[in-house]
Amino acid sequence: MTWHRKPLAGLDLETTGTAPEDDRIVTAAVVRYGGGRPTETRSWIADPGVPIQAGATAVHGFTTEAARTAGRPAGGVVAEVVDAVAALVDEGLPLVVMNAPFDLTMLEAEAERHHVRGLFARSVPLVLDPKVLDKRVDRYRPGGRRLEDLCRHYVVPLDAAHDSSADALAACGVTWKIANRHRWLTRVPLDELHEQQASWAADQQESLREHFASTPGKEHRAATVRTDWPLIPPMRSGVWAGE
């Protein structure tokens, strides 16, 4: 049985801003998807302990006050999210994360911040990133590559964009659709596919860097592009250019 016929684990985070090492988790969801079983979803709201940027509020809808009112202490939330992801990874499930370096770097940084043992210290996740996979199988398709764009292209429901649970489910659905459409991916062992995505992601980010460098008004963004996948090492300045 190919890997796309078995369950997938999914992770999504909504955050206070766009710097994965310095900003904080506001909401999180972990899902178990597919494999002939009912979908299981766990979700969290955290009080991040810092103000939520207006741009982030415009995306996911949580104000600083709303997160303080509805959220639980961030350290406890981070510990539970890491536990939930590690448990599914330890079952042998691949971990689907849209734009993985952002969410996984954020989760590791939050774990360090709150003195929680991080995911990569506990497990060896084999990651599937629909953003990287889609760019590999359909490199020259015009249009956007955000999750909403991929859902439209692959005909995957996304009832509430930037709701963590909805995004985690949609990312799994898109990954399944990509694999089902491009069956050669399903014949690649997951550990090899993980390594191949690291190479593909590096090439894709280099292309993004070149695009910024050659586009008037965007030249300064070239220096912020990182090529690491699925986790970026510490970077303490500026906004990470993942898109």
Rank of each mutant, 00 (worst) to 15 (best):
S164M: 01
D159S: 13
R136Y: 10
R139S: 15
V155F: 02
V127T: 07
L169C: 10
H162S: 12
D149W: 06
D129A: 02
Y154W: 13
R152I: 10
R139P: 00
A171E: 03
A160Y: 05
D129F: 08
V137W: 01
L150D: 01
K131G: 15
L158P: 15
L126T: 01
R145G: 05
A170G: 11
R181V: 03
P130H: 03
Y140C: 04
R139W: 10
A121D: 10
V124A: 12
P125L: 02
Y140A: 15
V174G: 11
L169T: 13
P157A: 11
V124Y: 11
L119C: 13
S165H: 02
Y140S: 15
R145H: 12
L169H: 10
V132D: 11
A179G: 10
L158M: 07
A170M: 09
G118S: 14
G144V: 00
K135M: 14
R181L: 09
V174I: 15
G173P: 08
R145S: 05
L169P: 00
R122C: 10
E148V: 14
P130D: 09
V127H: 05
L126K: 08
V156G: 04
D163F: 09
R113I: 06
R122G: 12
P157G: 10
V174A: 03
L169A: 05
R181K: 12
N180D: 15
A161R: 12
L150R: 01
K131E: 14
